[in-house]
Design a protein around this nucleic acid. Sequence first.
DNA 1: TCTGGGGTCCTAGGACCC
DNA 2: TCTGGGGTCCTAGGACCC
Length: 417
Amino acid sequence: MFALIDANSFYCSCERAFDPKLRPLPVAVLSNNDGCAIALTREAKDLGLKMGDPYHLVAKRPELKPIVWRSSNYALYGDMSRRIYETLLDLVPVVEPYSIDEMFLDLAGMPGELAQLAADIRSHVRKIAKIPCCVGIGPTKTIAKLANKVAKKDRNGPGVCDYSEESVRAAAYPSLPLGDVWGIGPASVAKLAALGVETVGAFVAMPAEYVRKVLTVTGAKTHAELQGVICFPFNTAPATRKSLAVTRSFGRAVTTWPEMRDAIASYTARAAEKMRRHGLVASAMQVFMLTNRFNNDPRYANQVTFAVEPTADSFALIASAVHAAERLWRPGYRFAKAGVVFVDLHRPDDLPIQMLPSRDPERSARLMAALDGVNGRFGRNTLRPGGTGPKPQWGMRRARLSPAYTTRLDDVLEAQA
DNA sequence: TCTGGGGTCCTAGGACCC
DNA sequence: TCTGGGGTCCTAGGACCC
């Protein structure tokens, strides 16, 4: 039996955890660049704000005036996620983090009544990690996710929904909309609606071969999972990742090559850092740049993917990325966004030995270790490659950023007795 | 002036091979 | 009148997730 625990309006709840006066107020957290709303409290939803609404358009609407806006603070949210994880380990033996605000729990062999256990877990997380959550229970991950969704929708309910019993599911499925199912997105909802299938009950009643024909194997797995057949097993060891990206919209349009070059260099340096943290090397990379697609600026978008000598060396990768960007660059356009993606990631041991490496691998490794060591100790960007300046004009807008309460010594709250 | 970022998996079709 | 069969690999695009 599985449980899925999912934080309510996670980013907003993190803001509230350290700023109690926000608790009764409608709160919304903005995407990078203060672009659009990506997390909303129930109070903000009730005022009519929607996920994805562009901030510069909705900030003026009079009925949305009471909303308290925050720039996204990933240092805070990432750390709060870790705290939830550790809090859960107080009560259950294994936890599988699924996303920044969701964790699967394996309840196999847990004593006592499951719904009561879920309620205990929920109140423990709320008390210790200061984050409100809902819990769903089911014999497969898909059912646990569905139960969680049901728990969330019931505003005055207990915050727990137990679908461990087949009879309970059979009673509930006919009234649940298909779009609530994990893995069934808008395209599949439309496809199935055209066939007259609109509820989980109707979906489950479809013959398996037919589902497979309409929705391919992914849909067939979801179909089986809803009937209690495990297709997505519990996984404690995280899979090694296959790609890794740093892509950003600019705080204002980039119109000169030196600015674009510096942006690409900075993104590459960040991505290389991430890659080293995972102990991986890239043997191919992609670089792209594009203009604003929402206004009337002349449009241009281009990308290039190319192989590189497998490495995690920032300097080597920056040189390759900038060289590629130079080929994509077109003067006269107002660029809104650019990015660097490392694909074809490997553990260095899995690759053949480079017979004629273009740089000394030992020296490179020592240099990168020194770079990461200094930055780990004194803060990101203390040491950085040339051309990756700290506060560029094109940098992210984050006008409403909260303090890094848990990860920056200067920002830690003071308690007075 | 201002509309996010970062992932995974699957399939079809083309290129290529024998 | 008539032009095979079977395989692999790669890529682009679609769909989904948070």
